[in-house]
């Protein structure tokens, strides 16, 4: 693969079976209306709703049965 090309570098990445990666500074409002500011260059937002650190991913999706994981 040539390196003299333009690379894709999206701000938001949906990881199959896992979280949504979010690049940059953002404020996320959760289902209860509470705002959470991102604190790192890339943040992982939970998509399986079972994280103990909502709205952030804590890896819990990996222990869920396949059918409960985000697509």
């Amino acid at each position: 693969m040539s390196e003299s090309r333009t690379f894709e570098h999206p701000d938001i990445v949906l990881c199959p079976g896992g979280p949504m990666l979010l690049r940059g500074d953002h404020v996320i409002q959760d289902a209860d209306g509470v705002s959470h500011r991102t604190e790192r260059p890339v943040s992982a937002v939970c998509r399986c709703s079972r994280s103990a650190s909502l709205p952030w991913c804590d890896g819990t999706h990996k222990v869920l049965p396949e059918k409960l994981r985000p697509t």
């Binding site: 896992g18 979280p19 890339v42 992982a44 650190s53 991913c57 890896g59």
Partner: peptide, 11 residues
Amino acid sequence: HVEADAVHEQL
């Protein structure tokens, strides 16, 4: 490391 590594593993 709970939240940081949830990001880092994907990266």
